[in-house]
Design a protein around this nucleic acid. Sequence first.
DNA 1: GTTTTAGTTAATTAAATTTACTTACAAACC
DNA 2: GGTTTGTAAGTAAATTTAATTAACTAAAAC
Lengths: 387, 387
Amino acid sequence: MQKKNAKLIKQINKRLVLKCIRDDEPISRADIAKKIRISRPTVSTLVNQLIEDEWVNEVGQGDSTASGGRKPINLMFNPKKYYIIGVDIGGTNVSVGMTDLNGEILSYDEFPTPQNTTDELFEKLQSTVEQMIKKKSIPQFKIFGMGVGVPGITNVQDGFVYDAPALGWQNYPVKKELEKYFDFPFYIDNDVNVGVLGEHWKGKGKDKKNIIYIAIGTGIGSGIIINNELYRGTNYSAGEMGHMVTDRLHAKDFQPTYSGYGFLESIAGGSAIGQMMTERINKKVHAKEVFNMYQEGSGDAKEVVNFAIENLALGIANYISLLNPEIIILGGGVSGAYPIIKNQINDILKRYTPQSCELAQTAFGKEAGVVGAAALFLKEHDSILNI
Amino acid sequence: MQKKNAKLIKQINKRLVLKCIRDDEPISRADIAKKIRISRPTVSTLVNQLIEDEWVNEVGQGDSTASGGRKPINLMFNPKKYYIIGVDIGGTNVSVGMTDLNGEILSYDEFPTPQNTTDELFEKLQSTVEQMIKKKSIPQFKIFGMGVGVPGITNVQDGFVYDAPALGWQNYPVKKELEKYFDFPFYIDNDVNVGVLGEHWKGKGKDKKNIIYIAIGTGIGSGIIINNELYRGTNYSAGEMGHMVTDRLHAKDFQPTYSGYGFLESIAGGSAIGQMMTERINKKVHAKEVFNMYQEGSGDAKEVVNFAIENLALGIANYISLLNPEIIILGGGVSGAYPIIKNQINDILKRYTPQSCELAQTAFGKEAGVVGAAALFLKEHDSILNI
DNA sequence: GTTTTAGTTAATTAAATTTACTTACAAACC
DNA sequence: GGTTTGTAAGTAAATTTAATTAACTAAAAC
């Protein structure tokens, strides 16, 4: 635990000052003092130390007030103090990116997930990261650290992944393995948790306290932010929306495709939509094509999509009834169909939820995982800067 | 906001010391210093102030260690420093109680909820509280404050109750009204939130971080504790489990009995169980009687109960899938039937949830609301003592 | 030139820590 | 049985850290 003495106070205040500058830049020392109600001399001392450490820059003078007085010196946060590596390990692709401290992506790259050994995966990851740093001529000490998203339930404490079917990992010690390849600090978490952190930091969930991020891809998963904090659950398995039951009778016939596959994802997930259509028309199709056929007016596609989306919407409605979030953000492959499905979902939400809730589609593209992973690093890493 | 200076440190440390004594009493100054890693002189100063203020008592000497040394002076928390009034306003009864700071109930009383005017209710409440204090000869300054539970969505900030059908309140300014009758500090909240706070403080949820308390009475509601904090939701309406949909097809026919009545409670709540049976046997019965008939082997009762409990269990399963809590505690009138229904529920949980979760029945009797309301006060009231 | 605001310097204050002390006890030793 | 030795609890004094307040300088508007 932190020593509970004067140094703690200083640290708290320094963080407060930095946060204030990040939130309200450009801002003067005097305004910071007013805003966070710390005396002007204290603010000056702290700001000067932040400048010394290159967290903050002076960026010229502001304007005096109408009634006169000395012009303030404007201060700005320096987002280039450090850089962060964000990694999203998916079943088919691995995305790697570098962001500054404001979440701006400076470099992005991806490669197909090596399917043979994890060693191969990590070696490729290491070389990609190293090349990225080299190409941008970033000195090693400027790399703050790395965040990593993996598609499975992750114990962020001991760094084990319980189960990641897309990677074939079971009780796999990712943290220990990654330590062999990287010597800066890193943090690992579930891809949906990474997703919701990204939305909270730079996406549709910005400035919101209670956020649900639902990823509808092959399966259905979700990440939860409550009171501005990621909620992981008692055993790191909160947000397993794919296991929800929205249709009592239908659920009785349900047999999981494989262990760990839930009811809702088995009827409303991407592969389920593709499979249901495949069975109807005797031709292998994917979810994306089903939505295309839906728009072209196919009756079969309409029935398949309506059934899936009705259940998905009930799942979302249940989420809202239980958690009363500020916003629900849809992501993952199927969320591309958002314009098509949003009305149906909203109708069901209106009917069944006690409180209305904003529904939105993620604004991120393929770089979502990178931004989220960077957010993960900044949330978890103990420094003056915390988001 | 708190002034961020040395005084804050002192307050933090004082709270830490008090918490340490409450958690590990009896304990010596030296052991406190070791445990919370603050220097012995600082602990001594703080302890002496706590003794001065009667938060803590010295209670004789402990034993020396085998290797000798001066005997430690044992310290104990003084639960009689203040007393708390707990109030549970229900549709039919109002419970009033007084507890000490350890949650021990020193006095309990109840009266039927006056059905005419709220003035009548509050006057009766005032006189009951005053008599209770008088009877126990507690001086006024020893009353720390009061917690109040009400059966409806409550904005705890401005003290308005949006909707409490059982009391006929709509957008009712409870806080403002109660201020006319009581001059000690008080806090108001939803009865299920009060319920979960009570369970967290003194009930089955003690020492657990993530708790769901489900009250199954006339309707179905729930309270959520996440990371040791009550989660109220964005608009104070988190935990509206009664609105969950567990049966897609059945829900299509659903028409709320009155505005604000949800699907799940309309098929699995206490009045629903009574009503479904009433329709079958053409005789007015209540849920409790239905469970009696169930035990006596009635086929009708069996069908009614199974249907209701199956849906309730699916609702609980969905809760677990989303929140992965440490424990789910069942309370409210219908929870009396827990021994009858627990197996059916557990079977469904096992089938549909990705993670197992402890299921328990509340250990509180009629005094649950009083303990919870006292917990509410201690959670909300800003003092050295926080639970 | 007066007023006003930004930012700094110096003195003061609060509360922690460290170091050194006293008090008190257990066990071993003569 | 009395005395010595080692250990632990608790306290007093000196030191340190970082805040605040009060007083100052700098610079701008009118």
